[in-house]
Amino acid sequence: MHAGDDTTPAARLQMLHTEYLQPGRGPQNERVTTSTTPAAPLRLAVYDHIKAAVDEATAHTRTVAPGAEPRPTELASLYEWVVASTAHLDTARQQARDALIYRQGLEHAILMGDTAVIRRHPCPACSTWSLFWRTERRQAICVNRHCTDGDGTSWSWTLAQIAHDHIARGLATVSRAT
Rank of each mutant, 00 (worst) to 15 (best):
P23K: 13
D5H: 04
T7Y: 14
Y20W: 15
Y79G: 04
P41Q: 08
D90Q: 06
M15G: 05
Q139L: 05
C126D: 06
L16M: 11
G24H: 09
D55A: 12
E30W: 12
T91W: 09
Q14T: 09
W155Q: 14
D90L: 01
Q95W: 08
Q95N: 13
S154P: 00
A40V: 05
L159W: 02
A39K: 05
T7M: 12
L44R: 03
Q14F: 05
D55I: 02
D6M: 09
E56W: 03
D90M: 03
V117Q: 05
V54T: 01
D55V: 02
L106N: 02
R71H: 02
N29A: 08
A39T: 07
I167A: 03
A68R: 03
Y102F: 14
S35T: 15
T63Y: 10
I167F: 07
I110H: 09
Q94I: 00
R119F: 01
R176K: 03
T18A: 13
D90W: 04
T61F: 13
P122A: 11
W133P: 10
T86F: 09
A84N: 03
N29Y: 10
D5S: 15
P27A: 14
G170R: 15
T178E: 12
E30M: 10
L78E: 07
R71N: 00
T173C: 14
Q28C: 10
P122T: 06
T86R: 05
E80C: 06
Y20T: 02
P72N: 03
T178P: 00
G24Y: 01
Y20Q: 15
G150W: 08
A3R: 13
Y79V: 06
L44T: 14
S127Y: 00
Q94S: 01
H146T: 15
L16D: 13
L42A: 11
L171V: 02
G4T: 06
T173E: 10
P72F: 04
Q104P: 09
T128E: 10
H60K: 07
Y20S: 09
E80V: 05
T37W: 07
A160F: 02
T18K: 12
L16T: 11
I101P: 11
P27E: 10
E107S: 07
H108C: 15
A87L: 12
A92E: 10
E69L: 00
L89W: 12
W157I: 01
R169K: 05
V46H: 07
Q22G: 04
L75E: 09
P66S: 14
V174E: 11
I110S: 01
Q14E: 13
T178K: 14
D98A: 12
W133I: 12
M112H: 15
E136S: 14
T135G: 00
E30R: 10
R25N: 11
R43L: 04
E69T: 04
P72L: 11
T63D: 08
L16G: 14
P72E: 04
R169T: 07
S130L: 08
S156Y: 03
E69C: 04
Y20N: 00
A59R: 12
V46D: 08
E136T: 12
T58H: 00
T128V: 06
S130W: 01
E107H: 06
